[in-house]
């Protein structure tokens, strides 16, 4: 069985910076996509580092990616065992079991889908998560049909509101809290574009079948729409290590540790995990 000092799962900002920090160790980095960069690759908007887009920021990160790190793309980690083996599945290598000393989990987060929310009604087409739509638009050139309703005015909700308004679509944001949820810089789009913001309310029902035709809020406002985006929050993606959280060979960093609004914090955590994994390796020698 192949043996690595450190297995890094996830090649986004956290995984890349962990790989850079793990100097001198034998490292394998696995990512399910065909390129390094993670969610940054679907972010065309400015706001990373010194006003770069996510794509540009990822390109900078990857520039000095260490040659000595083994990289396996298009590969999913199916399972992690307590005996420190991992089962990998990918189209190039097929099923592959490897052994590791240290594990760095940098799997990022996923979005809360509509199904998880107490939203009544039919289950029509035209409902997406905000990040799903971001990928459809920015990676695949898709444009949704307007008008669009976005549930949640956090950063992702605002970023999508801006992009859709820029594309000329009518956008309504619905926010459960009594004020807009995102960072100030992301709230600017509310002044620049005719985006409707409804605060202190939430979507309780969707209408239409097979295509969505509108949604109704808790306060009884019905908003016609052809597309509904759910931007109701992000959940750290940690199911792979379910029940193994206590092991000292496991290092969790980036958005799978806790969801960070800024990429710098993700990079910092990745670095710390890389260093911690190396220190553990030295300690065990």
């Amino acid at each position: 069985m192949e043996q690595y000092d450190i297995l890094i799962i996830g090649g986004g900002a956290a995984g890349i910076s962990a790989a850079k920090a793990a100097k001198g160790a034998q490292v394998l980095l696995v990512d399910r996509k065909n390129a390094l960069g993670g969610v940054l690759l679907q972010c065309t908007h400015q706001g990373f580092g010194k006003n770069k887009s996510g794509i540009e920021y990822a390109a900078d990160l990857i520039k000095d990616f260490p040659q000595e790190v083994s990289l396996t793309l298009n590969t999913t980690v199916l399972s992690i065992s307590k005996d420190r083996t991992a089962l990998l599945s990918g189209k190039e290598f097929g099923l592959r079991e490897i052994r590791f000393s240290q594990l760095i989990l940098a799997t990022g987060c996923r979005e809360i889908p509509m199904g998880a929310l107490p939203i009544a009604g039919t289950r029509p087409k035209g409902v997406y998560t905000a990040g799903q739509m971001q990928a459809m638009m920015n990676l695949h050139g898709h444009t949704p049909e307007g008008p669009v309703v976005i549930l949640g005015s956090g950063d992702l909700g605002l970023i999508m509101a801006k992009q859709l308004a820029q594309a000329g679509l009518a956008v309504t944001l619905v926010e459960k809290k009594d004020h807009c949820g995102g960072m100030i810089k992301n709230q600017r789009c509310l002044k620049e574009f005719p985006i409707r913001l409804i605060c202190g309310d939430t979507i309780t029902e969707v209408h239409g079948y097979p295509q969505i035709s509108g949604c109704t809020t808790a306060k009884g406002i019905t908003i016609p729409c052809s597309t509904l985006l759910i931007a109701a929050g992000l959940v750290p993606e940690r199911e792979l290590i379910f029940g193994m959280e206590k092991y000292d060979w496991l290092h969790i960093c980036g958005n799978c540790n806790t969801v960070h609004p800024m990429v710098e914090a993700v990079i910092n955590e990745g670095k710390l995990s890389g260093v911690a994994a190396c220190n553990n390796l030295r300690g065990s020698l």
Partner: peptide, 18 residues
């Protein structure tokens, strides 16, 4: 599961469907 590489390429990450 099969030896076929298509059966090792996971498309649905949550349910591990190839």
């Amino acid at each position: 599961k099969k030896e076929d590489p298509d059966y090792c390429q996971i498309l649905c990450q949550c349910e591990r469907i190839t």
